[in-house]
């Protein structure tokens, strides 16, 4: 990985954006990297969107908040509108195309349009949209491997959710497939 990567996950409350950010943070920690996870908790989250920022670095992390993230994973249209313009040049935008019909005019970022919600529905549980989106993001930006995520998920998932482990693995794999197809075509 480059020295530092900053991910923003943003969507409606209930789409699992906080959890998927925490999962990425656990994975970074388990891989021996420095990491910070910080949620939005101010007036902005009263508007129905929730977001979190995850900074991963080989060096100690100064600022846990960033103006120009290297990766934005957006689950809905307000999140697309907010973060598409501020992604750092050379960065990655993963957009949940099931709910976002916008496309980016920017030619200095990679855009992955992943039908996250629809694909999660196909898998039988719309609540794993977040794992599909994470699998896709890490395929295009292999800061950490999907296998690392799988291991951390198994280690940190609460006992009463262990029955969902296989579904979550399947969602990660689905995200990898969708992103791989798009990246080959591009």
């Amino acid at each position: 990985m480059t020295q530092q990567e900053a991910f923003i996950f943003s969507g409606f409350g209930g789409q699992g954006v906080m959890f998927v950010g925490q999962l990425l943070a656990y994975t970074a920690m388990d891989c021996g990297l420095n990491v910070t996870w910080i949620p939005s908790y101010g007036p902005e989250m009263r508007g129905g969107t929730a977001n979190c920022t995850v900074v991963i670095s080989e060096k100690p992390i100064g600022s846990p908040i960033v103006r120009f993230p290297s990766v934005a994973v957006v689950f809905n249209l307000p999140s697309f509108d907010k973060y598409e313009p501020v992604i750092a040049s050379g960065g990655l935008l993963v957009s949940n195309s099931s709910l976002v019909d916008q496309t980016s005019e920017r030619d200095d970022i990679t855009l992955l349009q992943i039908p996250g919600t629809d694909s999660a529905d196909d898998l039988g549980n719309v609540r794993v949209t977040n794992l599909i989106m994470l699998g896709a993001a890490l395929t295009a930006r292999p800061v950490l491997t999907v296998d690392d995520v799988r291991a951390s998920l198994a280690d940190h998932i609460p006992a009463h959710r262990r029955n969902l482990l296989d579904l979550n693995y399947a969602a990660l794999d689905r995200g990898v497939e969708l992103a791989s197809d798009l990246l080959v075509t591009a």
């Binding site: 925490q22 943070a25 990491v35 910070t36 996870w37 910080i38 949620p39 908790y41 846990p64």
Partner: peptide, 10 residues
């Protein structure tokens, strides 16, 4: 402050 209070770190 709230940033340190709400932030998760190893």
């Amino acid at each position: 402050d709230g940033l340190i209070g709400l932030m998760m770190e190893p």
